[in-house]
Write a protein that binds this DNA or RNA. Structure first.
Lengths: 229, 229
DNA sequence: CCGTACACTGACGCCGGCGTCAGTTGGCGC
DNA sequence: GCGCCAACTGACGCCGGCGTCAGTGTACGG
């Protein structure tokens, strides 16, 4: 008999991450696999990663993986969908009604929120910014849709801003591309170089200053020379 | 130009040189394959592309490919190396001696040159900006080295600019990331959306204005009264 | 204490894409 | 015209990674 007591749940699970029989509910096991997959993708990149890598990282057998996911593509897609949702929820459409918080404050809050989410989940951020493109044609479309939505939102806001006179003249869509591009690169470097989470505030400030004033201080162009430092 | 093949065979110098058997010299055939590979990579993406795709596009047999290249990785690397060189040559280090062309002029010329090169070879630009990352660990390193060099060059220039008082205070490296990121995104969109080559001038102007003044025109510089960092 | 069901396992067979190499072609020197 | 050899060809065998499925063992109801 001497059957291991149910205490094995937490205690003797010390033996690796070997899956205790009913220790994990189906949902929990699924999450475990997702987390392992995330780490593998972040470490090796989508194309270099194999199912074997993922199951090894999870600590289950190959067959188990297929009880929870269709294939590598599917885990990846699931991970990215969650991250898209997280990011989307972090962004609030700018409210331009006079009674609302100052527009600049709202814009800054959005930047801050995005940076915060990305620094909080570096693995996903790295995957999004360096591996998500070129996974396969279907996923590429999904990715493009996500970016388009973000760009469109920003473009609309910039357009509104122009009407209010707080955004310079110019093609709003181009400004949106420039902004998103700058943000992506900064985030990628921040995550890759392993910046501390506390840097979020500083980074936000840097980006905000950049879109506010740029950095080149050579013939001030005149009209807005008011603050040329 | 058919007779212009030399050195293809190292040994038998005694033998009279022969003209290429077909219409193409070895060098020309190599170029043909490179061009075909470039188109395939641009259309399908590196990972989706197969050797069979490339030889089909070239119009030669599978074996022929291996007379000119080691493997897919090698063609890709060759293509990218050439493009790196092209881009590198388009950039001139900023000369800050008083007698030189105005710094702003030089900066603008660099931006203009990069945009020009990229619009002139959209296929390579698309590959660089969307497929180059995650090809394999070795190539990733090469790519990182290239970007680091560009970022370093820009960082140095910004640092010089700060000393001259024509670049705002702040971390130059961060400014460099923001700038490169903005440029990359703009180029990617320009190439993907198929902007005409004539747009180069306009795009240059947009980027230049962006780094000069940003676009947000809301309280000029008063640091927000609230909790600063 | 037994029987069943269900989560889990991992060896196995399959397949797409790779790199090779024995064979073919055709230009060129003689 | 003849022979030679570099250039080219494409069928073939190999392999890494995939998805499956017959088998294992444990929890739990009877």
């Amino acid at each position: 008999m001497a059957r291991a007591r149910e205490a094995s749940r937490g205690g003797s699970a010390a033996r690796g991450r070997k899956a205790p029989r009913s220790a994990q509910s189906k949902a929990e096991r699924r999450s475990t696999i997702l987390a392992a997959a995330r780490d593998v993708f972040a470490k090796r990149g989508y194309h270099q990663a194999t199912i074997d890598d993922i199951v090894a990282e999870t600590g289950v057998a190959r067959g188990t993986f297929y009880l929870y996911f269709e294939d590598k593509r599917a885990v990846f897609s699931d991970l990215m969908d969650r991250f898209f949702t997280t990011l989307t929820m972090a962004i609030n459409r700018i409210d331009i009604s006079p009674s609302a918080t100052p527009v600049a404050e709202q814009a800054r809050a959005n930047i801050r929120a995005i940076i915060g989410m990305c620094l909080a989940d570096r693995a996903m951020t790295k995957i999004l910014l360096s591996d998500a493109h070129g996974v396969d044609p279907a996923f590429d479309r999904k990715l493009a849709t996500f970016y388009d939505a973000v760009v469109q939102l920003l473009t609309d806001s910039l357009h509104d801003g122009q009407k209010l006179g707080i955004v310079a003249d110019g093609e709003p869509r181009v400004m949106a591309y420039l902004t998103i591009g700058a943000l992506k690169e900064l985030l990628y470097q921040a995550v890759t170089l392993g910046l501390a989470e506390e840097s979020a505030e500083v980074l936000t400030q840097q980006i905000f200053e950049f879109v506010s004033q740029g950095y080149l201080r050579v013939h001030p162009r005149e009209p807005r020379a008011k603050k040329a430092r």
